[in-house]
Write a protein that binds this DNA or RNA. Sequence first.
DNA 1: GTTGATTGGGCTAGTGTCAGACCATTGATG
DNA 2: CATCAATGGTCTGACACTAGCCCAATCAAC
Lengths: 234, 234
Amino acid sequence: MTVLRPVRAGNAFEETVERLLQAIKLGVVGPGEKLPPERELAVQLGISRVTLREAIRALQEADYLDVRRGRYGGAFVTYVPPRPDTGDLRRVVADMGTDDLADALTFRMAVECGAAAVLAAGPLTGDQRDLLCRRLADVNEAGVEDYRRLDTAFHLSVAELTGSSLLATACADARLRVSDLLNAIPMLQVNLDHSATQHEAIVAAILAGDSEAARRAVSEHLEGTAALLRGFLS
Amino acid sequence: MTVLRPVRAGNAFEETVERLLQAIKLGVVGPGEKLPPERELAVQLGISRVTLREAIRALQEADYLDVRRGRYGGAFVTYVPPRPDTGDLRRVVADMGTDDLADALTFRMAVECGAAAVLAAGPLTGDQRDLLCRRLADVNEAGVEDYRRLDTAFHLSVAELTGSSLLATACADARLRVSDLLNAIPMLQVNLDHSATQHEAIVAAILAGDSEAARRAVSEHLEGTAALLRGFLS
DNA sequence: GTTGATTGGGCTAGTGTCAGACCATTGATG
DNA sequence: CATCAATGGTCTGACACTAGCCCAATCAAC
């Protein structure tokens, strides 16, 4: 029964490591940037500083972070996304299992399509339109290094602009579950061009207030990514 | 930042109470039925028996459960959904806040539409079609007492049939967030008839494999509910 | 240099949570 | 009526987590 599932995914330490890894891998804190101060971060995460420090130390020992003391010190992100490698891809898929993979792709398809449709259905302020266009432009201008991070930011803006934090959280969660996969896919120019066209279509549909077109555009975009995945796996 | 939100919603006791309340209010365990034995339930929920017992005692003291000892004993559900009352509705909305209300409705719209679209897009086995039709028939044959519970079961089957447990969980969560509201809405025959028509349309679209029609049908259904809510609130 | 603000590092006492064992009660079955 | 299996009730020792406090290091500003 869906509702009588475990109340907690693990202990506080494990969940904190997981969450920080999310922030790093999704590029919420990019390479070279630093996490908020421990005291502040502990409050945001709703845990004690002791537990947070244990998590940070684990990530430090795994070479994700470089921790420096003193004023202007902090926990700096050293992690840079690995170069795409289809060998990694197979390994990642083997780690997560094909069932979980299908689950994650289905979930992402549902929530991102839903978010785009909802966003297109509602009225948008000028600021919101500007933000969306800005994020789109960011992705289009992105170099290879920044592409995934800015692509993530674009997708998440769509969810955040709906004004529903539940929905934004769900989309962030969905994105995270496929981020290791996406990072392992080689970025070929032809695919990037294709994605760019689809991104344009998504934004156009949202700005036009065409809910069904928005859903269809996101659906095609994600289906394209899934097909790419299947291609590199077979 | 969405990703640096609290790692845990509360302590184990609080989360457990919340989860059991979900099971009771969503009708996963109906009035008169009993929860699984403590030892078993504790394993399912991933918590210790001590913590589970504290949660059960809290629900017992709040008159949701009747706990009996001995063989054939257990924690029996005594809670029956209150009679719809628009006064309750205003109170519930005041409790959750209008922002959270909008958030919950938006979230539900996105995930349920997404689930229906995904389900319609994929191929269905005969068993799956049967289950869907069965749930639809259950709602149509339901009395006033059982209506909400079977309506919930119908909506959740759509999500569960996608095969994505992440999606099923998201839909259950969304439903829960509006269940107090739905329970407070009077059930007028005209509304029930309207819902029945919409349910039929949803199932028809899914069985026909028409993804966009499925999304549209769910969208109209949920928009209808939202409109009903706004009506009783103004 | 010296200072002071900011940040990570470490300690302690108290509370929450857990696993496992054992006790108490109930009621169908023989 | 006696038995016994299933179930809730209780206790204990160990570990996880927290809040709060103070120490140590760093570096810009003076």
